[in-house]
Every structure is written in C-alpha cells, then in structure tokens.
C-alpha cells in the first residue's frame, strides 16, 4: 500500500510539473493554432537560468529562501523574455504563411536554442542545487512522500489558481479568451491581438520556467537536452486533455503523470516514455478531441 501511495504522489508531482509546461502549449495553440516546438526549450532555459542564478547566489553566501525567490523570479523573467522574443522573431512574421511554415520555424528555433545553450554553457549534466529543504513535519511520511513532492504540489496548485484568476477576471485574460474564440471579432471590438499573443507567450513561458526550476531541483541535474523530451511529454499531456483547453491541460498532465508513475512502478522503467506515447495514441484514436476538448462540429 505504501508503494502505491508513493507511486501516486510521484505521479501527481510529475503530472503537476507537466501541467506547468503543458499550459504554455495549450494557451499558444488555443490562440494561434501553433504547436510551439520551442516551448520545451523555454523550459530548459528557465531551468538553466535558475541554476545559474541559484549557484551564483549560493557561492556568494545568500540564505536559502532568498536564493529560491530570486532564482525563481530570474527564471520567470528571462524565460518570458525569450518567449516574447521568439514569438516576435520566428512566429509573428509567419502569421499568414502556409500552415507548416511556422511549425518548421518552431523546430528550427528549438534546435537553435538547444545548441545555443550547449555552446554557451556545457553539454555535461550539471548538478542542480537542492532548493527545497527537507521539512521537519514531513519526517513521519518522508519514505513515501518527499518534501519536494509536497512543495511542488503546493506551488503548482497556487500557480494554477493564480492563472485561473488571471484568465477569468483580468482584462488581459478576457482578451485572451476572446482572441482564442474568434481573432477577427476580437480585432473588431478593439482588442490588440498582437499584444494578447505576446502576453500569452510571456505567461506560458513564465509557467514553464517555474516548472523547469521545480523539476530540476526535484531531479537534481540538468543539461541542454532536457527541454526536448519534457516538451514532447507536456505537449502529449495537452493533447490528451484536449488542446486549447486550460483545465484539459491540467487534467491531461495529471493523467499522464500518474500513468507513467504506475506503469514504471509496476511494469518496467525501461519503457517509461513508451507508456506515455501509447496512452496518447490510444486516447487520440478513441477520443480524438482529448479528454476535455470540444468535439469539432463540421460546418459545411
């Protein structure tokens, strides 16, 4: 039973980190219909930025709390800046281009960013400092649920609540929803669509950066390649939940995280990614619009 609970919480943790990345995919897709391949790289850059900042601060002897806060903020700020810049450089000029062009541009951007970090930093795995201390009150259950699991769960829940609030009640959130539904109409009622798209990239990137920092500190190491597989998994989660749907992205991520956790725990850890992709293929075949996605009605 302990093993089951351990796997369950492991799955939740994993799922909630996927969710932080998946949200970026789903939001961008919802608004401009683009699979933002470079999103995984944004997450990787977030992890690297927090790694660099945290290590520098710890070398200069800052207290742990300050390190966590500053590294988190730095990751969010720089990742957002990257997201914003990428959209402006690589996607905005292609709004009216043939459908595949932005996708190729995104793949190119992804390759570029990977190699940029590889060249500017290193190809080795880097040890990531443990940013989350072991809480004392977690002692009795520490063999099942780690402190970092708890911290990740709490933090992602807070972020989700914040995001929901932002999208439901703020002006930019409403503009985002309107743009996602009908871009032409949004322009007609005076929404600055370019700015909404930029905002979407900024928010999505910040979420991914937080995810990057959390997972890096959870796993304890990073390298330039972590963005690719995490990006694909998160995109899988977004599709699983119904791409374009924000609650769907969260649900899909949790389902994916749990599936992976149980499958690797009970069956075999060699095929971790195979389980994820098989789940995706199965869901798409039997419910092509994803778990919470709206079924498309063909308008003829």
């Amino acid at each position: 039973m302990d093993y089951f609970i351990e796997l369950f919480f492991g799955g939740l943790t994993r799922g909630s980190i996927y969710a932080l990345i998946a949200l970026g995919y789903t939001m961008v897709y919802g608004i401009i219909g683009l699979i933002n391949f470079a999103h995984g790289e944004i997450y990787m850059i977030g992890a690297f930025t927090s790694f660099i900042v945290a290590t520098v601060l710890s070398i200069y002897g800052f207290p742990l709390l300050a390190i966590v806060v500053i590294a988190g903020l730095a990751a969010a700020v720089w990742s957002s800046a990257y997201g914003y810049t990428i959209e402006k450089l690589a996607y905005r000029p292609l709004r009216k281009a043939p459908r595949l062009a932005p996708l190729i541009s995104a793949i190119g951007m992804s390759i570029f960013l990977q190699n940029y970090v590889l060249l500017a930093q290193t190809s080795d795995f880097l040890p990531f400092p443990a940013l989350i201390p072991d809480f004392e009150f977690m002692e009795p259950v520490a063999h099942i649920v780690g402190s970092s699991d708890l911290a990740i769960l709490v933090l992602t829940t807070l972020v989700m609540i914040g995001l929901t609030f932002l999208i439901k009640f703020t002006k930019i959130g409403k503009a985002m929803r309107a743009t996602a539904q009908d871009k032409t109409m949004a322009v007609l009622v005076g929404i600055n669509v370019d700015r909404v798209i930029s905002a979407t990239f900024v928010i999505g990137s910040a979420l991914a950066a937080i995810g990057g920092m959390l997972i890096a500190s959870h796993i304890g190491q990073i390298n330039f390649y972590i963005g690719f597989i995490a990006g694909i998994k998160a995109f899988t989660a977004a599709v699983l939940g119904g791409i374009g749907s924000i609650p769907g992205a969260v649900l899909g991520s949790l389902v994916l995280g749990l599936t992976e956790s149980f499958a690797t725990g009970y069956i075999s850890s060699d095929y971790e990614d195979v389980f994820a992709f098989s789940l995706l293929v199965l869901i798409l075949i039997f419910k092509p619009s994803g778990l919470l996605g709206k079924a498309e009605t063909k308008k003829v």
């Binding site: 450089l89 292609l94 190119g108 951007m109 992804s110 390759i111 570029f112 960013l113």
Partner: peptide, 21 residues
C-alpha cells in the same frame, strides 16, 4: 564544426521568415 547545428536551426528560422514557400 560545433556551430553547425546552431546555424542549421537558425537558417531554418530565417528561411521560413523570409521565404515561407
């Protein structure tokens, strides 16, 4: 040598931006 994948990615983006067809 080590810059070639960087260049590859960059050229893909530039090509798409200036000549998407």
């Amino acid at each position: 040598s080590e810059y070639r994948m960087l260049a590859f990615g960059g050229i893909l983006v530039v090509m798409m931006v200036f000549k998407p067809d």
